[in-house]
Nucleic acid binder design. Structure first.
Lengths: 342, 342
DNA sequence: ATTTTTTGCACAATCGATTGCGCAAAATTT
DNA sequence: AAATTTTGCGCAATCGATTGTGCAAAAAAT
């Protein structure tokens, strides 16, 4: 057995005294090839350990059977679950998944988009970087008719395929829950207003307050950026130092909610008695912390699956420009951090 | 501007009245092309928005500049961090990263290996599935001289490139720490003995006991499989139901340690006073739980980086068969769950 | 038995970049 | 001025699979 040498359709063709084109068609069971020839070719292919060269096929077809993914950072619970969903679905359909991290930087995102475009991906799934405000780097995909599906963090200005949740409704629901628990002064960590997710959650928060005739107070809306554990601690300290501290807190992610709980503990603020807290995402950690964190479920794996399905549908059937938006359900998950026995 | 039509070196060549080969060489600053021509070509390439077609280059070179990755499941903290490290390093060098999940199933792993092989990846990074006991599916990579680097969960029987930690030393260290805290009956959740990581941690545990003349008791070594949160709860309950329960517990991952802490809490077992617990991995969750979990640090991101570096080194220089094993440092991270004030 | 249709396959171009070989013009040496 | 070397670039094959076109043999229709 020669090493380093792959069997090609030419080898098979030569051995069977047929043309390479016949072998190619036989392997695909093309109707213009007789059953006997098909059997023969397939048998020999099996014996010789023939493996189709995807690269050659990709070149010929200008199609790679590869999905490109651009996300912020893989090692975040939501993101890794999203990718997990994408990968499972794509691989079942025989597609490969190429991933790239933007690290929430616009420049990285642009560079990754270019790289994936050059790699001739069949489609692209994107969850935008926090920084991203313009979307020119996706234009060439649109022009080349390569489907792009945005997930979770989507552009508001661009007509596109989307898989999202109703962040407004979720924010509203979370806030209303705190109100129902008797909270009168409800604070919010305000995420980057560039991104739909934080913007909408914030809007939901404000409208819930309005609906229930609670005042909207500037000092209770503290702006963050990365919404990391560290930043969460900073924001929480800021909040708890107010002369008139809040009795409820809606965090736009679980990470900062965790920070808030820990910070509250240190200061001797009782959760949920003195301060009811609710997060967002249902990260694994939210069920572990003490007290367990109330949160909004976020169907990450399912989002990934659906995004991949959308992409494959458009990639295969070349349906053009029926920009669909899929909105997935979220649920209020009440745990102890917000549950008062009134 | 025509849509759907990519600029090729032929287009550039035609416009400049030179041969495509000249364009190709000019773009690579090949010495046999004059400086002026290089300038000319590069300028036009820029203007026309030329993008090299990786596919065509890959076909010609039988090289894809793509790294394949096979891991168990992306949405685990250790794994996603590992991939993050791989991706960062690879992309800096202009490589793409193709990921696939084995879901800890041997069959999936084999299928993914085949798929990645057919995609002609330039190299492969693998962390083995729990189930995997034979390694034939990597043979074709070896034969084709495609570098394979095993990370963390590596085969013991196959000569290969490896990036690992010293699981034995870590297990020993963890156990000795519990002994130093005054524990006399130290339990261990025994992971799958197919995998080096759990096997070695277990061995470290036993040898530490021996060194300090503590009895090795069968009933304190409880075997798990998935080592999931759910399984952890089961194992913990089993352990705590012993007539003579342990006063120390070394878990081979943080997940089961978390389960154990929660289970202990429910039963009113005080951690660390009655039961000192130490985990493994330093998952984010370990610092959040109450009491904070002592653990062994596991340099996931760095492992990914080094694995990618190893791979790229071998991929580029085609160095053959100098199977290196890189062993990374781990540290004992003492938090409250094991810290007794003796 | 001849014409028409169908069947089964071969030929050759194509996808786009790469590279060994070779040739002519320019530069250098004698 | 002639011989030699160097410089700069073109030609054409190659990587492996795909596919439109065409042609001969077999099958069907007249």
């Amino acid at each position: 057995m020669k090493p380093n040498k792959e069997v090609t359709i030419h080898d098979l063709a030569a051995e069977l005294n047929v043309a390479p084109s016949t072998v190619s068609r036989a392997l695909k069971e093309h109707p213009s090839i007789s059953k006997e020839t098909i059997q023969l070719v397939k048998k020999l292919a099996q014996e010789r350990g023939y493996r189709p060269n995807q690269i050659a096929a990709s070149l010929r077809n200008s199609k790679t059977n590869t999905i490109g993914v651009i996300i912020s950072l893989i090692n975040r619970p939501f993101v890794s679950s999203l990718i997990s969903g994408i990968e499972d679905t794509a691989r079942q359909e025989g597609y490969n998944v190429l991933i790239s991290q933007s690290h929430d930087s616009y420049d990285h995102e642009v560079a990754n988009a270019k790289a994936l475009y050059n790699s001739r991906v069949s489609g692209l799934i994107v969850s935008l970087a926090t920084e991203t405000l313009q979307y020119d780097h996706f234009e060439e995909f649109f022009r080349s008719n390569i489907p792009v599906v945005f997930v979770d963090r989507v552009p508001e200005e661009v007509a596109s395929h989307r898989v999202i949740i109703d962040n407004f409704a979720a924010g509203f629901m979370a806030t209303e829950h705190l109100i129902a628990q008797g909270c009168k002064r409800i604070a919010h960590f305000v995420g980057s207003q560039h991104r739909n997710v934080y913007k909408e959650r914030f809007r939901g928060y404000r409208e819930a307050l309005q609906k229930h005739h609670l005042p909207i107070e500037e000092e209770l809306m503290i702006s963050g950026n990365s919404l990391s554990l560290e930043e969460g601690t900073k924001l929480a300290n800021q909040l708890f130092s107010l002369p008139n501290p809040p009795d409820g807190l809606f965090c736009p992610n679980d990470t900062t909610a965790i920070s808030a709980i820990q910070c509250a503990k240190k200061r001797g603020i009782k959760v949920p008695e003195q301060l009811a807290i609710i997060g967002f995402n249902n990260d694994p950690i939210s069920s572990i912390i003490d007290p367990p964190l109330s949160t909004i479920t976020h169907p990450a794996v399912e989002m990934g699956k659906i995004a991949a399905q959308q992409l494959l549908k458009h990639s295969k059937h070349k349906e053009k420009f029926s920009h669909e938006t899929v909105v997935l359900k979220t649920e209020l998950l009440v745990r102890e951090s917000s549950l008062r026995t009134i």
